[in-house]
Design a binder for these strands. Sequence first.
DNA 1: CCTTCGAGTCGAAACGCTTCGACGGGCGGT
DNA 2: ACCGCCCGTCGAAGCGTTTCGACTCGAAGG
Lengths: 336, 336
Amino acid sequence: MVKITDVARRAGVSPSTVSYVLSGKRSISAATQRRVEASIRELGYRPHAGARALASSRSNVLALVMPLRSGIHVPVQMQFAGAVATTARRHDHDVLLLTQEEGEDGLRRVADSALVDALIVMDVQLRDARVPLLRTLPLPSVLIGFPAEADGLTCIDLDFTATGESCVGHLAQLGHRCVALLGSPPEVYARGTGFAQRTAAGFTAAARRGGMTSTVLPCEPTRAAARETVERLLHDHPDLTGVVVHNEPALPLLMEAFQQAGMRIPQDLSVVAVCPDELAENTAVPVTSVAIPAAEVGERAVGLLMDKLNGRSVPDATLLPPRLTPRASTAPRGSG
Amino acid sequence: MVKITDVARRAGVSPSTVSYVLSGKRSISAATQRRVEASIRELGYRPHAGARALASSRSNVLALVMPLRSGIHVPVQMQFAGAVATTARRHDHDVLLLTQEEGEDGLRRVADSALVDALIVMDVQLRDARVPLLRTLPLPSVLIGFPAEADGLTCIDLDFTATGESCVGHLAQLGHRCVALLGSPPEVYARGTGFAQRTAAGFTAAARRGGMTSTVLPCEPTRAAARETVERLLHDHPDLTGVVVHNEPALPLLMEAFQQAGMRIPQDLSVVAVCPDELAENTAVPVTSVAIPAAEVGERAVGLLMDKLNGRSVPDATLLPPRLTPRASTAPRGSG
DNA sequence: CCTTCGAGTCGAAACGCTTCGACGGGCGGT
DNA sequence: ACCGCCCGTCGAAGCGTTTCGACTCGAAGG
């Protein structure tokens, strides 16, 4: 293994000088800098991560806590993780993957052992057991999603309230008066998952403001559940003309169920979804949708964390505005 | 921060004794052991990961290299990653997430800097640029998938050749004589992805052995591509009665396209898929399928790595046998 | 009864890096 | 011409573990 002393000897300087070239924490003459860099390159030197962490009490690793719970859409999570990983690298950090298998102890473990410098916590619940723990840990963290009590924590997410509102707004503009939200499986609501509840809240509030009739129904992502949900919905609300679907895997199933129930899309029923564009573009009828900007959330989350690590102050809450893309699944009421 | 000297003092022993209690590398009297463990517990001691890595030249972290390429099914990857993470923890290791963004340099970086002890490399191509590099690295590694030249490397995967054969076998048993394989998008074949090619090889060989007519066609996971592929297939092979689909996102699209082309499943056409059970059970007609045992692959991969790290010898190749689950999408030929 | 051995413990030397204080030499200000 | 400063560099002291010999017992073996 080539170490800093080897680099130093070859460049004719002391190890500390090499270190300063690497970190830029003291000024170094251009000539020395060049020699040291050449030496590093020629020897293929890489600082030993452990030694560095020990001496500097900075590991340059951040933990990504992915619960991998049921009922959440995996591709979105993955897109997010990918963005976190590549953005972290851009800031010279690596990413340690933590699943919820370990629970809160896992967080404490990596924090106490100084394995990581900071935490990114995904899939935050409204009453999340990890949140009080995060408050006590000496490490900076960023949450994806908002717990009920978010004060003092740095959180970021798509603005799901505005998302719900924006979907309703779109339908309202097209003249729809009776709308429904078909959401995540019941377990997701039961867990108190913020994004599900916020979408529902925004949806309901906007519908009420617009004087529209509205319902919210959870839905399992199975063919049978989709059919049953649709039947119940149409039975209870015969004048329904618009739905918002916030449940990726169920979206195609629900659309099919509506069509089999005799509702043509968009002639009889307008559909808006909260889902990735890729999915929205590949359903039987391309779906008007609001995408979750997973990549942007991931990037910004890392950015926030870096700011905190570097002592810069950051906003407590970052809400990304929804962007609705109209497609073929929505049309003015009565256009059939 | 509480350190090993604190623990030692409180237990009335030397730091080295604490270390030996922790590692079990020397025998310690039961009494001492108890006192040390109590001390650890009471102080909430966690060894500093960096210091440990420096002194022992073992970081207890392994790298998971996930390319995040296009055309591969994300949920399966994720299931795999989850299994790796939890299994690694069971062996007292953590997992560092590496995307392909960094390319081969990323591998070299984490290896040279001693950030990780070992590598798990996913989505291996037949001619993979990372493979020669892995040979030169001093770190043990396990590949998920098989490159063209696998000698000297430890690889594990579902036996895709047998999978292709098994699907054909199932169709043959039902009396089908003209079959097709609808596979991954062309880009996946173009990259020389082992699993795609092996399934095709097994499929074709088994069909030939059985005296069946067979075709292999790639397919993009879009509605339009699915329709076009199906039309072409039915035009070129009017006597087609069985298909194997090895392309998760395209599966529902293809089934729909077949039905719209007038082929009822399973009366006119039997369909076998290579996909997760969850997907197979939620298509319009539940699909006979071979699932990719992602969790098992992940677990075994970590197991192999641990064996290598501990100097145990391991088999070069591990091929998991396919398990075909019959469902409603396959029936004897001419049963309609 | 003396030697030998192993079990149990300790002290000290790494491990490879960062960082702090110090130092020499050139420069500008007076 | 002198003082004080800042720039660039160095040496040495850590950072918290692990691990290697060495040491002390008490027990087993001759």
